[in-house]
Design a protein around this nucleic acid. Structure first.
Lengths: 125, 125
DNA sequence: CGGTATCCCCTTTGATACTG
DNA sequence: CAGTATCAAAGGGGATACCG
């Protein structure tokens, strides 16, 4: 047993590489990009319009990272004037299922969370 | 229908408040704190020892945030010398189930991810 | 023991300009 | 259209010191 293991762990360990992967695919922009690409394949500027708050730079970085991790595919459709289409991969859809589960969790628990926040903030003041 | 809705959305929407909640409970330290507290209730310095890389400041901030969101409970056990125990709440355990699902996903897909990364990094060079 | 307060750094983020 | 390059701004995180 590795020295970092929990004596009675019943779930998978949190390793650095697992955390890194989650960081790279569950961040603010990745969630929205994956969501948009699950709807339909999209071009770069289509994604910008679908996610108004994202900057070029952040969108590029997000797409490259998702592509590197095998979550999205970059397809050059034509070379004149230059069209690039991004699509979700089968691997990406397995992540989307988890993201949906997370969003359902936030929806379900948000009332409890807001009560907890109100209680916490009250006894602060 | 809100203007930000997906025309054919089949999952929950990503709203700012939902994203904010996920940011506050799925970050690097929160995962490890929740994991540790699922094992057993722990004192502050116990947690520091369980998670060697975390600083006082980050651990305090993480615990306060999780407490505010109703995921952990702060219990003052005695006032001499001063003992504080942190415990996971029922709401926190519902999150732990999802974290376990995420970690299982990373375990299962990591081989595919690593192949994708190798392919991507190769065609870079 | 269980924190808070302060300073500082350093990475991410954003704005802007330019390119194939 | 689909980016890259550069610089400025901001915020999180760490080190250190101090308090109840």
């Amino acid at each position: 047993m590795p020295e970092t293991a929990h004596p009675t762990a019943d779930g998978p360990q949190i390793t650095a590489s697992h955390r890194e992967l989650l960081d790279q695919v569950l961040d603010k922009w990745s969630l929205q990009v994956l969501d948009a690409l699950c709807e339909r394949p999209s071009r770069f500027n289509e994604l910008r319009r679908a996610i108004p708050a994202v900057t070029q730079k952040s969108l590029t970085a997000t797409l490259r990272r998702l592509e590197r991790n095998g979550m999205v595919e970059r397809v050059i459709v034509s070379s004149r004037p230059l069209a690039v289409e991004y699509r979700i991969t089968p691997l990406g859809t397995t992540l989307q299922d988890l993201i949906d589960a997370l969003l359902r969790w936030t929806t379900v628990t948000m009332p409890d969370v807001e009560r907890a926040r109100a209680r916490f903030d009250d006894q602060e003041a």
